[in-house]
């Protein structure tokens, strides 16, 4: 590792690159070093073609081996360790995949890790939220290699370029430590939370899974994704992948409509970077109003159907 060079670890599913990758590349561009992209797993070569056209990428490394499907941490970390030689920086998105993988990579390389950055100040200095986003810290990494996860919503995706070269690298194979068994993915036609332009989110105020239909109906009217507070998820109104907040998804849509959500800091941590926030709550003291651009003190059982009807 003589000069600075960045490796971005991409996530892909069924040969399609995750939308977060173009945003991680944007963060990598802020470091100022040449950027290589690593694409792994079944059908990686298909996703690699897409990766090669991301603006600012110098080269793409492809390892097509099912051992890396679901970014299985034990296998993928060993692969990245074998490839890490020339890289001063290793980045991935702070998705659940990246957050499981990159600390393992860092420990194998004998360095610390910087999580969930929202800005790059310099090649060794990064900005990241702590205490559920109630404080923003600037940290300087003292390690010779920087292993970093990036909050995708904090960076605008890079554009396109003419495709660069894709090179295949040797697989390190299956470490035989863990094995993927099954997954239960959210199905449905609604936009995905991470990339949605509009999100309609519901909380405990909805009262039941049945009533949550009100949120879904409004979301469908607005072509929006559906989100939820932890209380709504814990009460079983919706599945866990809809939870927004410190321990759920971090979102930053153009419009976030929160109905029946009080606005606990842990929830705000996940949505307060939205461009426009609307709060609908019957309690005028609810803390959600402190971050809302438009606050409507109302019974959601009246306001939501009326909104849907009039839009």
């Amino acid at each position: 590792m003589s000069e600075a060079r960045t490796l971005v670890v991409a996530e892909q599913i069924d040969g399609r690159l995750s939308a977060a990758v173009a945003r991680v590349v944007a963060a990598a561009a802020g470091i100022g070093a040449p950027i290589d992209l690593l694409v792994v797993g079944s059908q990686a070569s298909q996703a690699a073609q897409q990766a090669a056209r991301l603006e600012g990428v110098a080269a793409v490394i492809c390892v097509e081996d099912s051992a890396f499907d679901h970014l299985l941490a034990e296998n993928t970390a060993a692969l990245i360790q074998s490839l890490a030689g020339p890289y001063s920086h290793l980045l991935s998105a702070s998705t659940t995949g990246g957050r499981s993988l990159m600390p393992r990579v860092a420990a194998l390389l004998g360095v610390g890790q910087v999580s969930d950055i929202i800005a790059v100040e310099s090649p060794d200095t990064f900005v990241r939220p702590i205490y559920a986003g109630s404080v923003v810290a600037t940290v300087r990494s003292l390690d010779d290699r920087k292993v970093v996860t990036v909050r995708p919503t904090a960076f605008e995706p890079v554009g396109e370029q003419d495709g660069v070269d894709v090179a295949n690298a040797a697989s390190t194979g299956d470490q035989r430590l863990a094995r993927f068994v099954s997954e239960q993915l959210a199905e449905g036609e609604r936009p995905e939370l991470g990339g949605a332009r509009v999100i309609v989110s519901g909380g405990r105020g909805l009262g039941s899974a049945e009533n949550f239909r009100l949120i879904e109906a409004l979301a469908d009217r607005l072509d929006a994704a559906v989100g939820a507070s932890r209380a709504a998820v814990d009460a079983g109104y919706v599945p866990n992948d809809l939870q927004v907040g410190q321990t759920g998804r971090m979102v930053a849509p153009e419009l976030y409509i929160a109905a029946g959500i009080s606005g606990a800091v842990q929830h705000l941590a996940g949505m307060k970077d939205s461009k426009v926030i609307v709060a609908i709550n019957s309690d005028e003291e609810a803390p959600i109003f402190q971050v809302a651009d438009y606050g409507l003190v109302a019974d959601l059982f009246e306001a939501l159907p009326e909104l849907e009807r009039k839009l």
């Binding site: 610390g112 300087r140 990494s141 003292l142 926030i277």
Partner: peptide
């Protein structure tokens, strides 16, 4: 520690909006 804390700040407060 492998990281030096350069500084901490409170995040930019959102402007309190309006009641409709």
């Amino acid at each position: 520690p492998r990281q030096e804390l350069v500084k901490v700040e409170l995040p930019a407060e959102r402007q309190a909006g309006v009641r409709v």
